[in-house]
């Protein structure tokens, strides 16, 4: 059986909010490392990979690996019944038909118990190759969100150009064109507001903004986002949490 207790229900709520517009039916794969998921959107242009590490739960008990097939719209409905500060416990049998979710308030005088019906989900798992990216940019997640939301007003696509001078997000559409350039800067007082660029070679890639705007729904998870790019491979957009991560991969637009 699985028993996993999370100090703050808000963490799972934020994770689900971050991915539920991209993927609908998913498996939570529970193993010794924690609770993981990997899923592609319907068009196979984007892939989401999430891990809530077992260390983030206390306790985390698991007798054998199980997959919990979940419809995220249904899970969202149940999670709305939890307060962000509630303690959340997930429980499931070894061959589960349902997932139990127990919410307890911090004062320990309210316990809510919900059962979510599980589904059989046949999910394709992809091997994500270890990649030495040519450029890795870490920046405030709110800044990245603003740039994507601004540029999508002008165009469907954004070209991201990383060089030693900085990172340039540019687009052009029917009404005109626009760009935002960020230079590397180190904010000593507020490190989360720094922009860091690690570069082994310059990179220029074009991506669909619709997906990037969607990824930015994960901004609530982390004040910092990391973009990793190499020519001709999918972009990696990572939001790291205290004990886990949500990673999005986005296939580039290629050629003319």
């Amino acid at each position: 059986m699985l028993e996993a207790r999370l100090e703050q229900a808000g963490v799972l709520k934020k994770v689900v909010d971050a991915i539920r517009d991209l993927v609908q039916d998913i498996n939570f794969d529970c193993n010794d490392s924690g609770i993981a998921l990997q899923a592609m959107d319907n068009s196979h242009v984007a892939l989401v990979s999430m891990l809530l590490k077992s260390e983030g739960f206390s306790p985390y008990r698991l007798d054998r690996n199980i997959a919990l097939g979940i419809n995220l719209t249904s899970l969202t409905k149940v999670l709305r019944c939890a307060q962000n500060e509630d303690i959340l416990t997930l429980k499931a049998e070894d061959t589960p038909d349902t997932l139990s979710l127990i919410f307890e308030n911090a004062e320990n005088d309210r316990i809510s118990e919900y059962e979510l019906k599980l589904m059989d989900i046949d999910q394709e798992h992809l091997g994500i190759p270890e990649t030495e990216y040519a450029a890795a940019i870490s920046m405030p997640s709110a800044e990245f969100q603003r740039i994507c939301r601004d540029l999508i007003q002008l165009s469907d696509s954004v070209t991201i150009e990383a060089s030693k001078e900085g990172v340039k997000f540019s687009c052009s559409g029917d009404i005109g064109s626009g760009s935002v350039t960020l230079r590397q800067q180190n904010n000593v007082d507020k490190p989360d507001l720094s922009t860091k660029i690690e570069l082994t070679e310059p990179v220029t890639l074009t991506f669909s903004l619709k997906y990037l705007v969607n990824f930015c729904k994960a901004s609530a998870l982390s004040s910092v986002v990391t973009l990793s790019l190499s020519n001709e491979v999918p972009l990696l957009v990572e939001y790291a949490m205290g004990s886990g991560f949500v990673r999005f991969y986005l296939a580039p637009k290629i050629g003319e």
Binding site: L126, G127, K253
Partner: peptide, 14 residues
Amino acid sequence: EGTQSTITQFFEGR
């Protein structure tokens, strides 16, 4: 703007 590629062109099934 280029042609949209897919994730499966880069990552293999296992």
